[in-house]
């Protein structure tokens, strides 16, 4: 039982990190029809800048804020310089964002050096809770809490606010949104910056979870995030959460029970969804 609970907590925590990366990706694809392969780079930049802000200020909270701000600024630059010229052309988007991903990764090495950097859990989140025989690591619970909190905030914004309505409407029919007097390009920019900030948040939360950060970390998580977006349904926020949890849990259980399949399980999940429900488990409604 203890093992099962720990595997579940582990899977949920990993799932939440993937969710933070995938949620931005799905909104960017759903609304802007942009395939952003540089998204993993924003995740890595979030991790590095967050650890740097944390070491500079001594406050993990300020580290998180610094990472979010870095992500948003990088998102602004990426949308303006990299994405704007290639709107509507998926092939060019793939090429230029993959190229930018490499640039982002190499820039991390230029700024912080090529070696791995240690990332520590802040003292108040270190250790574990004890429930009888079950030990639950505090920091993993923290990640799960933040993931659900972000999901709640964004669900509220998407469902209950005007900007959320506009984003959902834009996912369905961009032309009509413009014809109703809304500057969709500005909405695109805000969504891109938000997606980048969420990726950076995922990165800074991942840093103490993993213990070390390295420039290429974005590639690995970006692949998982793309799988989640496909499984959850492109443009669906709830779909991203459900698929991220599914991928996180499947990875966690498989790594223990069938280690040989732990890397393949996500691809298998994606293949099954693509065969039986190619539009993903959810639609853009959520």
């Amino acid at each position: 039982m203890e093992l099962l609970i720990n595997l579940t907590i582990n899977g949920l925590a990993t799932g939440m990190l993937i969710f933070l990366l995938a949620s931005g990706l799905t909104l960017i694809f759903g609304l802007m029809s942009v395939l952003n392969f540089a998204h993993g780079g924003l995740f890595a930049w979030g991790a590095y800048s967050g650890v740097w802000f944390y070491s500079l200020t001594g406050s993990f909270f300020l580290g998180i804020l610094g990472a979010i701000l870095t992500g948003a600024i990088l998102g602004f630059i990426t949308e303006k310089l990299i994405i704007t010229p290639v709107y509507g052309n998926h092939v060019q988007q793939i090429l230029i964002t993959l190229g930018f991903m490499l640039v982002l990764t190499e820039m991390l090495k230029v700024v912080w050096g090529p070696n791995q950097i240690a990332a520590k859990v802040p003292p108040y989140l270190a250790g574990s809770y004890e429930f009888g025989d079950v030990l639950i690591i505090k920091y993993r619970l923290f990640i799960i809490f933040v993931g659900f909190l972000i999901f709640g905030i964004f669900q509220y914004m998407l469902q209950k606010t005007k900007i959320g309505l506009v984003v959902r409407a834009g996912v369905m029919n961009k032309e009509m949104v413009q014809a109703l007097g809304i500057n969709i390009k500005r909405v695109f920019l805000y969504v891109f910056m938000t997606g980048a900030a969420l990726a950076a948040l995922g990165g800074v939360l991942f840093a103490p979870y993993s213990g070390v950060i390295y420039a290429e970390m974005g590639f690995e998580f970006a692949i998982l995030a793309f799988i989640v977006v496909v499984i959850g349904g492109m443009g669906s926020f709830s779909g991203s959460l459900s698929a991220a949890i599914l991928v996180g849990l499947a990875g966690s259980y498989m790594a223990y029970y069938v280690p040989a399949l732990s890397l393949a399980v996500n691809m298998m999940l994606m293949a099954i969804v693509l065969i039986f429900r190619p539009q993903g488990l959810f639609t853009a409604k959520g």
């Binding site: 309505l165 959902r168 409407a169 369905m172 029919n173 032309e175 009509m176 413009q178 014809a179 109703l180 007097g181 809304i182 500057n183 969709i184 390009k185 639609t283 853009a284 409604k285």
Partner: peptide
């Protein structure tokens, strides 16, 4: 002018396919 500026200058548009946001 961009579409949203045209709309804001006082032109309403009802497209042939109605442009309803189906999930709203």
């Amino acid at each position: 002018r961009p579409t949203y500026v045209i709309a804001n200058s006082g032109i309403g548009y009802v497209p042939e396919d109605q442009g309803i946001f189906a999930d709203l």
